[in-house]
């Protein structure tokens, strides 16, 4: 069962990737919105390809640490996604990350995954001075090929090693 979902997901990523490469212009190369904090950063809390593939597992893992064990400063946190990826509108107010065309919804709509996080979680950063949590630098990945703003001229090229690491959970289950 688990293995099947893993394989399916992996297949999904491949198909999605292929689609992305073949479609020019119709889909932007990155879901990162201009005017969000993330647009000004070199990398996410982990290499982009890793986050794309595994963010749901990371978030689920760390939410349990936080809720059940009271461990707050985890590497992955939904609050931090919102903090970085919310875009400001012209008046300087934040747009909800799950609003049409915004960071979370643009991908989830594309892959037809319904997003229920924000039935309960706040959709915009709270207006207070910035927090410094959870912005750890990623490991020794090649930032060039795994950066946030990937382009079609420079498609992602992964060594076998990197691929294994990115898909560690697939292999394991």
């Amino acid at each position: 069962m688990d293995r099947l979902t893993g394989i399916k997901r992996f297949a999904g990523v491949l198909v999605g990737g292929a689609l992305l490469l073949f479609t020019t212009g119709a889909i932007s190369e990155t879901a990162v919105t201009e005017g969000s904090k993330a647009a000004g950063l070199d990398t996410c809390v982990a290499p982009t390809a890793d986050i794309r593939r595994n963010h749901m597992d990371y978030l689920k893992h760390d939410r349990d640490l936080t809720v059940r064990k009271g461990i707050r400063e985890t590497q992955y946190s939904l609050a931090e996604c919102v903090e970085c990826h919310a875009e400001k509108d012209d008046s300087g107010a934040y747009k909800p990350v799950n609003a049409e065309g915004q960071f979370c919804s643009s991908c989830h709509n594309y892959v037809a995954v319904s997003l229920s996080c924000f039935q309960c979680h706040r959709k915009t950063p709270e207006l207070k001075s910035g927090s410094d949590t959870a912005m750890n630098q990623g490991g020794d990945f090649n930032v060039e090929s795994l950066g946030l703003l990937q382009s079609l001229d420079k498609p992602v090229s992964l060594s076998r090693d990197e691929l294994v690491r990115l898909h560690a959970t697939v292999k394991g289950d």
């Binding site: 590497q75 294994v164 959970t169 292999k171």
Partner: peptide, 9 residues
Amino acid sequence: PGIMLTVAK
């Protein structure tokens, strides 16, 4: 593989 390791500060 398959084990997630995250860093808590």
